[in-house]
Amino acid sequence: MADFMDFLTKYIFLVAAVALHVIIIENTIFTCALGTSTALFIIRKKRGVLVFGAILTFMTLFSSFIVIIINALFPYLSDYNIYSPFIFVFIISVAYLLVLLGLRFVPQKIKSRIIPMVHMSAFNCAVLGALLIGATRDMNPVEFIGLGLGMGIGFTLATFLISVSHDYLYSENIPKAFRGYPVTLVYIGILSLAFYGFIASELQF
């Protein structure tokens, strides 16, 4: 029992460490720019940022689990090659269909809120990017789970940080030419620069 608890603790810490690294150092939006278009769309449409982030995190985790299972059955799939994207898109499609099936058992009130977001949360750069990054870095299953979790939570955190200033960025305080999308990109760039500070690298000018 003690050995099992040690085993569990070790791997939980590993998952948490990888997830934290991905959230802070390799943030989905601020460092990798994955899912930026999706995040801007969700913020403009004033859809639930946290709900969308939760669904996207679930999609990345679920897809990562399926990839781990398939890699265990067919080890050659762990090699990144020109056919990997097709396999990953197929896996994401399966995860998407399973989520749609699962929504049948959810109350109508919650389902009507979630259904419009499931499509965008599945087919975007963040989910496919998580699988591709895991494959290119030849990660083991535990690290893969940490990566999927970190990408989803990192996306949610970044989208939340951008949405906080949405009203101001679209207000009349901003010059007309910059109002909205242009200044939002500049704002994300400044936040990205702040996150770059976590890498503790010196900017070269």
């Binding site: 720019a33 030419a177 910059f178 999308y181 242009p182 939002t184 760039g189 990205s192 770059y196």
Partner: peptide
């Protein structure tokens, strides 16, 4: 670096 990419694209969008 990525942050410059965001700022540059934002400036072009403003133009």
């Amino acid at each position: 670096l990525p942050f410059s990419g965001f700022i540059i694209v934002g400036l072009f969008a403003a133009v």
